[in-house]
């Protein structure tokens, strides 16, 4: 198990538990009452830690190395999934994956950012930072979905669109802009979930939809707390303050009306029980799809555009 710094009290409890278990195995002492006591303590401590997370702690949780990623959810939730590759212009981006899938009786196009599950794969997936061809692959899949009347589900988890020379030369900005334009008028329901990191243009590039939800331990912001600290405080040391200032937690985002709801995670985060998390996500997807497919598509698009057109806070001077 990997423990984050704010989980230190948990870590020591687990160490105690392991030792106790060992003692139980090596001797005749019945340790079960003590184990039960310790388990109670672990549950209580975990609840305490997780009921009071700061913005920065949620950022850390969203980046937990054991957190489930897009392909895990797709495999868990769908009976059948066929991954499709390539943007048909340049190449196949490994940081965005997707394809048609059957989730119970729903035919959907499901896509999202993909991070690697180990050191080698993290590089292969470019840490979930897509190049323009990733966004263009996503759009290609969405256009296919439109033709076959399949709702689009986007799972968002990225530290940002990749800032590289080739990415710029191939039009990173154009690719994201094009997606926003096309998604605004896509003639099929779009359902988005922030399942980890929701960083800036890289996130919203596949994040414009009829409904947007955030998992409990995720964040969504115009910039990562680290970059914000570096630009506004001119130092990398103010990431905690930046995380607070940016109001990037699901609670904040929901109170602003920018996201439609928060999906509860198992105690200890999605990585504590990935299968349970996938079940919860699947349930939400089905509930939302049941509602969305009832709405006539012209009305849905009108609502979608009006929703985004109404986002903004300003005042009128005389």
């Amino acid at each position: 198990m990997v423990f984050l710094e704010f989980e230190k009290s948990l870590e020591s409890l687990y160490t105690q538990r392991n030792k106790l278990e060992q003692v139980g195995e090596e001797s005749d002492i019945d340790v079960s009452p003590m184990l039960a006591e310790l388990d109670k303590k672990i549950t209580k401590t975990r609840k305490e830690i997780y009921s009071n997370l700061t913005g920065w702690q949620r950022v850390q949780l969203s980046r937990h190395p054991e957190r489930p990623y897009t392909l895990f959810y797709i495999e868990e939730m769908s009976k059948k999934f066929v991954e499709l590759h390539g943007d048909r212009y340049f190449g196949d981006d490994k940081a965005i994956v997707g394809g048609p899938a059957k989730i119970d009786n729903y035919h959907v196009m499901i896509l999202g950012h993909q991070k690697g599950v180990n050191t080698k794969l993290r590089q292969y997936r470019n840490f979930g930072m897509a190049n323009p061809e990733g966004y263009r692959k996503a759009l290609r899949l969405m256009k296919t979905a439109e033709r076959f009347n399949m709702p689009v589900i986007c799972l968002i988890d990225t530290p940002g669109a990749y800032p590289g020379i080739e990415a710029e030369e191939r039009g990173q900005a154009e690719a994201i802009a094009r997606n926003l334009f096309e998604m605004a008028k896509l003639r099929i329901p779009i359902l988005c979930y922030i399942i980890g990191e929701g960083a800036s243009g890289g996130a919203i590039g596949i994040g414009l939809g009829d409904r947007v939800f955030m998992l409990e331990n995720t964040w969504y912001s115009v910039i990562s707390p680290e970059s914000c600290s570096s630009i506004l405080w001119r130092s990398w040391d103010y990431k905690e303050q930046a995380a607070e200032m940016l109001k990037l937690t699901p609670q904040d985002m929901h109170s602003f009306g920018i996201v439609d709801g928060i999906i509860a995670e198992p105690i200890g985060g999605a990585h504590a029980d990935p299968n349970a998390m996938a079940k919860t996500l699947k349930k939400s997807i089905k509930t939302q799809l049941n509602e969305l497919v009832q709405i006539p598509i012209d009305q849905l698009i009108k609502q979608r555009i009006e929703k985004y057109a109404s986002i903004g806070k300003y005042e009128l001077a005389e």
Binding site: A177, L208, S221, V222, L232, L246, I305, A309, I311
Partner: peptide
Amino acid sequence: GARMMESAFSLMQMAKTSAKLTQLAD
């Protein structure tokens, strides 16, 4: 770029302006 001091609201202006441009195109 986006105005960091308005956080997610500034990010959403990307979606807002792009969505409005579809109306102009239509």
